[in-house]
Amino acid sequence: MTREILFAGFGGQGILFCGKVMSYLGLVSGLEVSWLPSYGPEMRGGTANCHVIVSNDAVGSPIINNPTDLIVMNLPSFDKFENTVSPGGNIIIDSSLISKKTSRNDVNAHYIPATQMANEMGVPKLANMIMLGKLISVLAAVSLDQVKEALEKSVPPSKKELIEVNLKAIQAGYNFNSDI
């Protein structure tokens, strides 16, 4: 099993953190992982993305050219990466920010209004965790305990109080049925 997961959106949406939690989730599940961010001037307010690979085997190239899973939180990233997704892969789309539908019929598209849901929950900064929750439900590979453990490892000790609310956001995304 190897999942090549590309997280993409605007800087400030918590894209890199989202990838970090996913990486820890792989780690606590006993898998090999790598996390590679975009860096440099790209980070300054523009698009941000990170490449997370979770695998049974040692990770070779940490660069993802054809993701098995794309988590996308803005239109420019959707336009840029939609066609790179491997056939049979998943695209998880924040439908509050991206009104387009995918034109691909060889991938599984999951539309979730994560930003709107986060606003309604009063946690506008946690749309990323809602997206992650959806990804976890799509991959259907881990337990809630493991998610909690991954969060605990991802969040610095000074921000421990944020774990619960992050977990809630992940659950909201996990429980959201986007395929109706």
Partner: peptide, 10 residues
């Protein structure tokens, strides 16, 4: 290289 510097692994 830049990639090794920036990437995370366990």
């Amino acid at each position: 290289d830049g990639m090794l510097g920036q990437m995370m692994e366990p």
